[in-house]
Nucleic acid binder design. Structure first.
Length: 970
DNA sequence: ACAGAAGCTTA
DNA sequence: GTAAGCTTCTGTT
C-alpha cells in the first residue's frame, strides 16, 4: 500500500445484525433456509461496491476487506469477566446465516478476515493503523460508535444505510467530543449492551461536558473534587475504578498480529460469474439480474452454486462459492472490458487522477484555441466555465473562459485582463490575449454544436452571459442541478467547492484567494494570468470530474427523470425570464418613499414624546430596555439570547391592552420596512442598459424544490396591507402592454386531497366550493350559508396547519388560543378526516425508514436528522417532511408548467413573455391585443401541468387577470 | 469587514 | 406548524 491508496474495511459482524434487523424476518430460500440477513448483506455489499466503483472520487477503494468477530470470548474477558455477559444468544434463524455470509464475502472475491481472541473492531483498528503507517487512507463501513475513536485525518467511517460519511466533524456533532476523546467518553457512559460499566448516571451529554471541562478522563478523575454538583461528584469518585476498567474495555487494540498483511487486501476486479453463481444458489433473483447487467455476464449461462450450510459461530470450510462453469466463464472473460466496466474505469480516472493546477494551459493565440475547440468537439463532452467581472450575469462583462476536455486536461482563455492593480490610471490591457470577437466566434461553434454536451456548474449564469453575446449553449448538463436532484435536503450546499470536497476530496482554489476580498478585492480582469489560469481551468476540470461522478449516480438513485424533466429544462426558461426582467416605475417608488419618510418621521416624534426620550427605535435592544425596563410594561417575554422580545406579536398584545406607544412602533416598523427594503432598494436594481429589474432565481437553494429569488427578491413584494400593496403599482407593463398574473388556487390543499385520497376534500374541490368553509362545515356541523367568519378563519388556520405539519403549539399560536383548545381542534379534525392522519403517519414512517420523502414526481427531499434522538429536532423534521411532499409537489407542478409555457405561447402565435414566478403565481407581459389570446393558453398549461405523468384526482384551478400594473393584475 | 440575532416581507 | 431573502443593529475580528 502506498500514499493515495484507499482501504475499505467493512464491519461484517455489524453488517450482519443490521441486515438481519432491517429486513423482514421470514425471508427463506425454497428449501426453508432462512436467508434474510444474507440477502441484506449481499445487497448492501453490492450497492457499496457499485457506488464506490462508479463514483466516489477520492474514496474509490484500492484495498478491501470484510472483518468478522470470531467468537464471543476475547482478551477483554480476561480484563473483565462480565464483558458482554448480558449479550443473549443470536436469534435462531440468524445462526445458520453466519457461515453463509462468509461465503457471500468470498463470492464477492473479497478477503474475509477474523481472528481468535479478537473482536472485529480490533482487527479494523489494526488495519486502519497499518494503512495509515503506509500513507494510505481508510474508510470503515460501519456506523458503530465503538469504532468512532478511530476516526482521524486518514480514517473516516461510512454508514451505508444512511449514505452518510462520518468524519471528525460528524463525530463531534453527534457526541460533542472529537474522536480521540471517544474512548474517555465511552469509559464514562459505559454500554449496557456490551456490559461496560461506566459511571452510573453519566450519559453522553454530561460526559462530553465533563471532558470539555477537564480535558481527559485521568484529569477528570484526579480533580473530581472540583465538580460542583454534589451527587455527580460523589458517583464519579465512587466509580473511578469502573471508569478506568471501562476505558480498557472500549479501547481498541490496533497492534493485533494479523496473519494477512495489507498486500493481501488489494481489491480484485469483479468476478461476475463467480458471484452470480453464488447469488443464483441463494435464489436472490433481482440481485442476480443487477449483477449480471452491471458485469455484462449472461446469468443464464452460469450454474447456481451448491451452498453448504455450516453451523457454528464461524465458517472455516473450503470455498464452495463457484462451480466449474463459473470458473471457466470467468477465465474466458479475462482481458475483455465490458461497457459497464469501461464506464467504471472512466469514472475512476475522473476521481483518481490528481488535480494539478500547474498543469493547465493558458491559451493566448487563436491557433491554439482552434486546436482546443477541435479537441473538445471530438471529445463529445466538455466542461465550460466563464470568468466575469461581476456576479450579476446581466451586468457581467466576459473576462475569459475555460474548457476541460478530460480530467486533468483544462485550459483558460483570457480575453480582457488588465495590467497592474487597477489603480486610477486603470492599467493597460494585457498583451497577448485573443480578441473577444475572434475567440467567441470559435467558441460558438463548440457551444452550439448539437453533438457536444457542454457541462457547467450553475449553468444558468454562464448561459446568460453567453446569451448576451449571441451564443446559445446547447445541449448542456449542470452538475449543480445533478447534486440537487441527488442530494436535495442533505446538509451542505451544492456549490462547486463543497461538491469538490465531497466527491473528489479536493479543495479547489478559493475565489477569495485569487481576487482578495473586502478592501483588497479586485475584479477578475485584474488577476494575473498565471493565477487566473490555475483558478479558472481548475473550475472547468473539477466540473468535468464532478460530471463523471454525478451523472452515473442519477439512475442509481432513481432521479434521472427529476433531473431531466424538472431541473435541466428549467435552466433556459429561467435564463430568459431573468434576461427579460420587469419594468419598475422609478417615479412611483420615489413618491412612495417620500410619503413613507414623512409618515415615519411623524411617528418617530410621537414615539419619542411617549417614551420621554430619543433613542434608536430600530434597535430591539434599546427598545426592549425602554418598554420593559424604564417604562415598566408588563407581559414581556425574552428571546433565546435573553433579550426582551419586541416582536410584532408582543407589541400587538400591548397595544390591545390600550397602550399607545407599542401601536406606533408597529406602524413605524411597517413604514421603515417598506421604505428601506422596497421603495429605496428597488430603484438600485434597475439595470442601466435595459431599464428593467432582473431578479436572479436560484434553482438549487431550497430543500423542497421551490425556486428562490434574490438581487432583488421579487417573491416577497408586499400585498397584505394597503400601504404595502402600493409597492406593487410600481411594477408595470411596457406601453401598449399588460401584465398578466395567473395563480393556482389552493394548490397545496389540492395536492393533499389527491395524495392523501380524502374523499370529502376531493368532492369539495370538484364542486368548486370554498374549501375553508367546507372544512369548517364538516368539522363543526355548521351550514356554509351564513357561517360566522370566525369559524371559517379557524378552519382556514387548521388547513394551513395541516400543510405545515400541524402541532397544537403552532395552531394555538396562530389563533391565539390555549394549546388545549388547539389540541381539541386537531383531534376533531382528524376524527372527521382520518385519512389525513393516516397520511401524515405514513409520511413520517416513510421518512424515518428511508431518510427522505418523495414528491409525486419522484423528487427526493432528504431529512438526515429525522431519526434524531432529540424529540424536538425529530418533530421538526417530521413536520418539514410532511410539508415537503406537498410544497415540493406543488413546486414540481409549476415547474412543469413553466417548462412548457414558452412553446405553448409560441404555438398560440402570441409574443407574450413570462417574467416572474412567485411559487404559485406566474407573471407575464403581453401586448394589449394579445391578452385575450394569452390567458386561455396560460390557464390551460398551468391547469394541466401534472399531466400526463400524473393524473390528479382533483382539478387544478388557475385565476388569471390582466392590468397595467401588478397590484391590479393580481 | 463580517457574522449572528432579531425582525419582517412573501407563498 | 412549512419554505425563503433582506435590512438593521450589534459585537467581534
Amino acid at each position: 500500500m502506498k500514499k493515495g491508496d484507499h482501504l475499505f474495511l467493512v464491519d461484517g459482524s455489524g453488517y450482519i445484525f443490521r441486515a438481519y434487523h432491517a429486513l423482514p424476518p421470514l425471508t427463506r430460500k425454497s428449501d426453508g433456509l432462512p436467508v434474510g440477513a444474507v440477502s441484506g448483506f449481499c445487497n448492501m455489499l453490492w450497492k457499496l461496491m457499485q457506488d464506490a466503483r462508479n463514483t466516489d472520487v477520492g474514496i474509490t477503494p484500492t484495498h478491501f476487506a470484510v472483518i468478522f468477530d470470531y467468537s464471543s470470548k476475547t482478551f477483554r474477558n480476561e480484563l473483565y469477566a462480565e464483558y458482554k455477559a448480558n449479550r443473549s444468544a443470536p436469534p435462531e434463524d440468524l445462526v445458520p446465516q453466519f457461515g453463509l455470509i462468509r461465503e457471500a464475502t468470498r463470492a464477492f472475491d473479497l478477503p474475509c478476515i477474523e481472528m481468535e481472541g479478537f473482536e472485529a473492531d480490533d482487527l479494523i483498528a489494526t488495519y486502519a493503523r497499518l494503512a495509515c503507517d503506509a500513507g494510505g487512507d481508510t474508510t470503515i463501513i460501519s456506523s458503530d460508535k465503538d469504532l468512532m475513536q478511530l476516526v482521524g485525518p486518514t480514517v473516516s467511517m461510512y454508514d451505508p444505510m444512511k449514505d452518510r460519511q462520518i468524519g471528525i466533524p460528524e463525530v463531534i456533532e453527534k457526541w460533542g467530543v472529537p474522536p480521540e476523546k471517544m474512548i474517555d467518553l465511552q469509559a464514562l457512559t459505559g454500554d449496557s449492551i456490551d456490559n461496560v460499566p461506566g459511571v452510573p448516571g453519566i450519559g453522553p451529554k454530561t460526559a462530553a461536558q465533563l471532558l470539555e471541562q477537564f480535558g481527559d478522563l485521568d484529569t477528570l478523575l484526579a480533580r473530581a473534587g472540583e465538580i460542583k454538583q454534589d451527587k455527580r461528584r460523589q458517583t464519579i469518585i465512587d466509580n473511578a475504578d469502573a471508569a478506568r476498567i471501562s476505558r480498557e474495555l472500549v479501547k481498541l487494540k490496533n497492534d493485533v498480529a494479523v496473519a494477512d498483511g495489507l498486500e493481501s487486501l488489494v481489491l480484485q476486479p469483479p468476478n461476475g460469474p463467480k458471484l452470480i453463481s453464488f447469488l443464483k444458489g441463494m435464489e436472490f433473483t433481482s440481485l442476480t439480474r443487477r449483477v449480471a447487467e452491471a458485469s455484462g455476464t449472461d446469468a443464464s449461462a452460469v450454474d447456481a452454486a451448491t451452498v453448504v450450510v455450516e453451523l457454528g459461530e464461524a465458517a472455516h470450510g473450503p470455498d464452495v462459492g463457484a462451480g466449474e462453469t463459473a470458473q471457466a466463464a470467468a477465465e474466458a472473460k479475462t482481458g475483455e472490458l465490458t461497457p459497464a466496466a469501461l464506464a467504471d474505469s472512466v469514472a475512476q480516472a475522473a476521481v483518481n487522477s490528481k488535480i494539478d493546477v500547474n498543469a493547465y494551459v493558458c491559451i493566448r493565440d487563436i491557433q491554439t484555441l482552434a486546436d482546443w475547440i477541435a479537441e473538445a468537439r471530438g471529445a463529445e463532452v466538455v466542461a465550460f466555465d466563464t470568468e466575469t467581472n461581476s456576479l450579476d450575469p446581466m451586468q457581467a462583462e466576459l473576462v475569459g473562459f475555460s474548457l476541460a476536455t478530460a480530467p486533468g486536461r483544462a485550459a483558460y482563455v483570457p480575453l480582457t485582463h488588465k495590467e497592474g492593480a487597477g489603480d486610477l490610471l486603470g492599467g493597460g490591457v494585457v498583451e497577448g490575449q485573443i480578441p473577444t470577437r475572434d475567440a467567441l466566434a470559435l467558441l460558438k461553434l463548440l457551444l452550439e454544436d448539437p453533438n457536444v454536451l457542454k457541462v457547467a456548474h450553475n449553468l444558468k449564469f454562464d448561459m446568460l452571459v453567453m446569451s448576451r453575446h449571441g451564443i446559445d449553449v446547447t445541449p448542456a448538463d449542470d452538475t449543480m442541478l445533478m447534486s440537487y436532484a441527488l442530494d436535495g435536503g442533505t446538509n451542505g450546499g451544492h456549490g462547486m467547492d463543497a461538491l469538490s470536497e465531497k466527491w473528489l476530496g479536493h479543495t479547489p482554489i478559493a475565489f477569495k484567494d485569487v481576487t482578495g476580498s473586502g478592501k483588497s478585492f479586485v475584479t477578475f480582469d485584474h488577476v494575473a494570468l498565471d493565477r487566473a489560469t490555475c483558478y479558472a481551468a481548475e473550475d472547468a476540470d473539477v466540473t468535468l470530474r464532478l460530471w463523471h461522478v454525478l451523472k452515473p449516480r442519477l439512475p442509481v438513485k432513481q432521479v434521472v427523470s427529476v433531473y431531466e424533466r424538472l431541473e435541466r429544462p428549467l435552466v433556459p426558461v429561467l435564463m430568459r425570464m431573468e434576461e427579460r426582467g420587469i419594468s419598475v416605475d422609478r417615479q412611483i417608488l420615489s413618491r412612495l418613499s417620500g410619503e413613507l419618510a414623512q409618515g415615519a418621521a411623524r411617528l418617530e416624534e410621537e414615539i419619542f414624546q411617549l417614551a420621554g426620550e430619543r433613542f434608536t427605535i430600530g434597535s430591539p435592544k434599546q427598545l426592549g430596555d425602554i418598554l420593559f425596563g424604564r417604562m415598566g410594561f408588563a407581559g414581556g417575554s425574552k428571546t433565546k439570547t435573553g433579550q426582551w422580545s419586541t416582536s410584532a406579536q408582543v407589541l400587538e398584545d400591548l397595544a390591545a391592552e390600550g397602550h399607545e406607544l407599542p401601536r406606533k412602533i408597529v406602524d413605524w416598523r411597517q413604514l421603515t420596512k417598506l421604505k428601506s427594503t422596497y421603495t429605496d432598494a428597488l430603484p438600485g436594481f434597475i439595470n442601466p442598459e435595459t431599464k428593467r429589474v432582473h431578479t436572479s432565481y436560484a434553482l438549487a437553494a431550497t430543500t423542497t424544490g421551490r425556486l428562490s429569488s434574490s438581487d432583488p427578491n421579487l417573491q416577497n413584494i408586499p400585498i397584505r396591507t394597503a400601504e404595502g400593496r402600493k409597492i406593487r403599482t410600481a411594477f408595470i407593463a411596457d406601453p401598449g402592454h399588460k401584465l398578466i398574473s395567473a395563480d393556482y388556487s389552493q394548490i397545496e390543499l389540492r395536492v393533499l386531497a389527491h395524495v392523501a385520497e380524502i374523499a370529502q376534500l376531493r368532492q369539495a374541490f370538484a364542486d368548486g366550493r370554498d374549501i375553508h368553509a367546507a372544512t369548517a362545515s364538516e368539522m363543526f356541523n355548521v351550514p356554509i350559508e351564513g357561517m360566522p367568519s370566525e369559524i371559517r378563519r379557524r378552519a382556514k388556520a387548521i388547513n394551513f396547519g395541516i400543510i405545515y405539519g400541524i402541532s397544537a403549539f403552532g395552531l394555538a399560536n396562530q389563533l391565539s388560543i390555549p394549546r388545549e383548545e388547539a389540541g381539541d381542534y386537531i383531534k376533531r379534525y382528524f376524527e372527521r378526516f382520518p385519512g389525513i392522519r393516516d397520511y401524515i403517519e405514513e409520511t413520517k414512517a416513510y421518512a424515518r425508514d428511508k431518510g427522505y420523502v418523495e414528491t409525486i414526481f419522484g423528487r427526493r427531499v432528504h431529512y438526515p436528522e429525522i431519526r434524531s434522538p432529540n424529540p424536538s429536532v425529530r418533530a421538526f423534521n417530521e413536520r418539514a417532511a410532511t410539508n415537503a411532499r406537498l410544497q415540493g409537489t406543488a413546486a414540481d407542478i409549476i415547474r412543469r408548467a413553466m417548462i412548457r409555457m414558452d412553446d405553448a405561447l409560441a404555438q398560440a402565435g402570441v409574443s407574450t413573455r413570462m417574467l416572474l414566478q412567485v411559487h404559485d403565481e406566474l407573471i407575464f407581459e403581453a401586448p394589449d391585443a394579445e391578452v385575450e389570446a394569452t390567458i386561455p393558453v396560460v390557464r390551460h398549461v398551468m391547469e394541466n401541468a401534472a399531466m400526463p405523468a400524473v393524473s390528479l384526482s382533483v382539478p387544478l384551478q388557475v385565476d388569471a387577470r390582466a392590468a397595467h400594473n401588478w397590484d391590479e393584475a393580481h
